[in-house]
């Protein structure tokens, strides 16, 4: 069956796999009581605070919630604005 899918270049994974992925995310957010909407709010405020001090690329900012085995974390990925940096020498 899987081989057939591959031969036919089926793009979508089977729906059971999609269900598992969706649940993984939904449960993580439910458990932490951190909704995707709250992550958006956090992202906007982080952008505002940091860009007061450092030039960043607001389009590239990502704030995600991840569940780990010991600790759950909020991860903020904040790309700095690409400018030519002075090199030493």
């Amino acid at each position: 069956m899987k081989l057939l899918d591959r031969l036919l270049h089926r793009q979508e994974p089977p729906s059971g796999e999609i269900a598992r992925e969706r649940l993984r995310l939904v449960l993580a957010h439910d458990r932490a009581n951190i909704s995707p909407g709250l992550l958006e709010v956090l992202k906007d405020e982080i952008i505002a605070v940091i860009s007061r001090h450092v030039p960043i690329d607001p389009e590239g900012v990502q704030v995600t919630y991840t569940e780990g085995p010991r600790v759950n974390r909020l991860v903020a990925d904040i790309p700095l604005q690409t400018g030519r940096r002075p090199r030493g020498g």
């Binding site: 069956m1 994974p13 089977p14 729906s15 059971g16 796999e17 269900a19 598992r20 649940l23 993984r24 449960l27």
Partner: peptide
């Protein structure tokens, strides 16, 4: 049958989640 086709969450996935 649905599980075998991949179109239903399998037992391991539910327990793990």
């Amino acid at each position: 049958d649905l599980v075998r086709r991949g179109d239903m969450l399998n037992t391991d996935a539910v327990i793990e989640l």
